[in-house]
Design a protein around this nucleic acid. Structure first.
Lengths: 137, 137
DNA sequence: CATCAATCTTGAATGATTCCACATCACGGC
DNA sequence: GCCGTGATGTGGAATCATTCAAGATTGATG
């Protein structure tokens, strides 16, 4: 995969790919921890470089829900979206509700050349939802 | 408006409302400048407090496109979305493509209780789009 | 095996946002 | 109209994700 993207195959890169694959929606800090757990000392700068390079190469996808730090996932190219919990920040994948590229046709695009529609659903995850209704009894 | 939200009417709050109304999608820094231009010295903390309070009261809406700082707008309650320019960061409003709450029905919600669907269209604004095609000639 | 550019390391810098403790002001009651 | 009190604003330091910069390593090629 790395070679196909004309990226050198280095230990940090392999470890980052493995970490993101193993922990979907992991933030940068989690990736750093995971990579260090596997390789030992690795500079955070290296992780940032790798995440940036992989994201630019399209091998991973970067998501940044409001109020959260950057998160990464290996599931790319299928235009899926995310549900984010307002309370605990948990994230889950959501397939497109209306076919492959749902809202990709904006009603009035102001002359913009649109190439992607990103959808984030906001709400409460099962756990937080349960504790809310429990505490409101 | 402020009183209806049980918020005290202070000069900073009025100035912030006016600033956000006058500059749609303005970031915090712009709001601070605008408010100071009108009132003189105002602490940045006050602006943050006000923006947070107004957003929580639902008088303004906060948007945070990936790679951008927080931005605010007074247009609330109509579930509209945004187009963001990948090149210059320009933002424009976009009405819902498919009725009032388009993608609000996720195909599989993982048990989440969803209350809002936020859509961000990514692309190039007219200006950046023009300069891109020009430079690629 | 040698070479060179791509990549990693180290450590400092940036910048938006938040925390804290104290001063001040808006608003309901007298 | 004046007061008291709690909500707000002030000033300044602190946090923390992310980025910059310069020099040391290392992967890929011939």
């Amino acid at each position: 995969m790395l070679r196909d993207a004309s990226l050198r195959v280095t230990r940090p890169r392999l470890a980052v790919l493995a970490a993101v694959d193993a922990h979907p929606h992991a933030d940068t800090g989690s990736v750093i921890s995971a990579v260090r757990g596997e390789l030992g000392a690795v500079s955070h700068q290296a992780i940032y470089n790798v995440l940036g390079a992989l994201a630019e190469a399209g091998l991973i996808r970067r998501i940044e829900p409001a109020g959260s730090v950057a998160r990464y996932e290996v599931r790319v190219g299928d235009n899926h979206h995310h549900v984010v919990c307002r309370s605990c920040g948990a994230i889950a994948d959501v397939d497109c509700a209306v076919g492959d590229a749902p809202c990709l046709s904006a009603s009035h695009d102001h002359g913009f050349v649109i190439d992607e529609a990103e959808v984030i659903y906001w709400g409460l995850c099962p756990d937080c939802s349960a504790s809310r209704s429990r505490s409101s009894l």
